[in-house]
Simulated assay, not measured.
Amino acid sequence: MKLHFVVLLLFTLLISCSPTSNTEENSISVAVEADDSATEPVPEEKNTVAIDSDEALIATALMAAPEASRADCKVIGYNMAGEFVTLREGTNEFICLADDPKKEGFSAACYHKSLDPFMARGRELKAEGKNHNEIFDIREKEAKAGTLDMGKTGATLHIYYGKESTYDPETNLVDGAKYRYVVYMPFATAASTGLPESPIAPNHPWIMNPGTHRAHIMISPINE
């Protein structure tokens, strides 16, 4: 009887001394092995190519326009030969400005046709060698004098831009490009619009160059 008691006691002690972590270690080991054997997600392949033809310049420039209007937009800009030309005629209210193939990155724009005198004047002054401040001052003077047509109040400019200069020829989307929107309100101020003079949150509208010919509402993209 005493011998049975001793055997039972030793058996109980043996069980109680077994490391409880063994089961945990086994579980972790199994989890790690399962994780190692799991198939890692395959990154999606991008079917992007260089923007290296007039057709590609037109296709990507149109992406700056509202989707419903792209079919009838006029497209202007530098062609692959370096000439500033009309790349495609259009019939609606938008003019798209293609990316300059000689510059790094990508930047296309689409603006309401009533803004064309203002935009064209800027390009003309830039071609004359005027810098940003000089262009601003000249157009400010001309707008105040009434000799520069600033277009319709509320006319928009859509900018499609990014660091890459490649695109998907199936969708015409430029790799990593984003949108920025501008609404021109010549001589408007923070007081006349109720807008702040600097952005207070991502994607929040604000007024830039208030009180000048170039006053405009800015809507920048959300930073991801």
Rank of each mutant, 00 (worst) to 15 (best):
K113F: 05
H132M: 14
G151K: 08
I159G: 01
Y160W: 05
T166L: 00
F136E: 04
L125Q: 15
D168L: 02
H132V: 13
A108H: 03
D175S: 13
Y111F: 11
A98I: 02
T153S: 15
E164G: 01
D175Q: 11
T171K: 07
E134V: 10
E128T: 06
T153Y: 13
E104Q: 05
H112N: 06
K103E: 14
A109R: 04
T153A: 15
G151T: 10
Y111A: 00
D149K: 09
K152G: 13
K141Q: 13
E164I: 02
E128Q: 14
H158M: 02
N172K: 04
L115M: 12
P101K: 14
F118W: 07
P101F: 13
G151W: 09
I159H: 08
E134A: 12
C110S: 11
D168Y: 03
D168N: 10
I138V: 15
F136K: 09
C96L: 10
C96W: 03
D137P: 02
G154N: 11
R139G: 09
E164R: 05
K163D: 05
E124F: 07
T166W: 00
D168T: 02
N172W: 00
D137F: 08
T171A: 07
P101W: 13
A145Y: 14
N131F: 10
G146R: 15
G146C: 12
M150P: 06
M150I: 09
L115Y: 04
Y161D: 08
S165C: 08
F106W: 03
D175I: 03
D149P: 03
A145F: 13
G151Y: 08
A143L: 05
I135Y: 08
E104L: 02
T166M: 01
K113V: 08
N172F: 03
I135F: 09
H158C: 01
M119V: 07
K113N: 08
A108G: 12
R121Y: 09
D149S: 11
L157V: 08
S165R: 12
F106Q: 01
A143P: 05
E142K: 06
D116A: 14
H112Q: 06
T166D: 02
K103C: 09
S165T: 09
A155S: 15
Y161F: 15
Y160M: 04
R139D: 09
N131R: 11
M150C: 15
D175K: 11
H112E: 06
K102S: 15
R139T: 10
G146E: 12
D149A: 11
K178R: 14
E128A: 06
G162E: 02
A98S: 04
A120I: 06
C96Q: 08
P117V: 06
T156F: 01
A98T: 02
Y160S: 01
L148I: 13
M119G: 01
K102M: 13
V174E: 00
E128F: 03
T153H: 12
K144D: 07
N131V: 11
H158Q: 04
V174C: 03
D175G: 04
H132I: 13
L148S: 10
G129P: 05
A98M: 00
S165W: 01
L173W: 07
P117M: 05
F106V: 04
D137V: 10
Y111G: 00
N133Y: 07
Y111V: 00
V174N: 01
L115P: 02
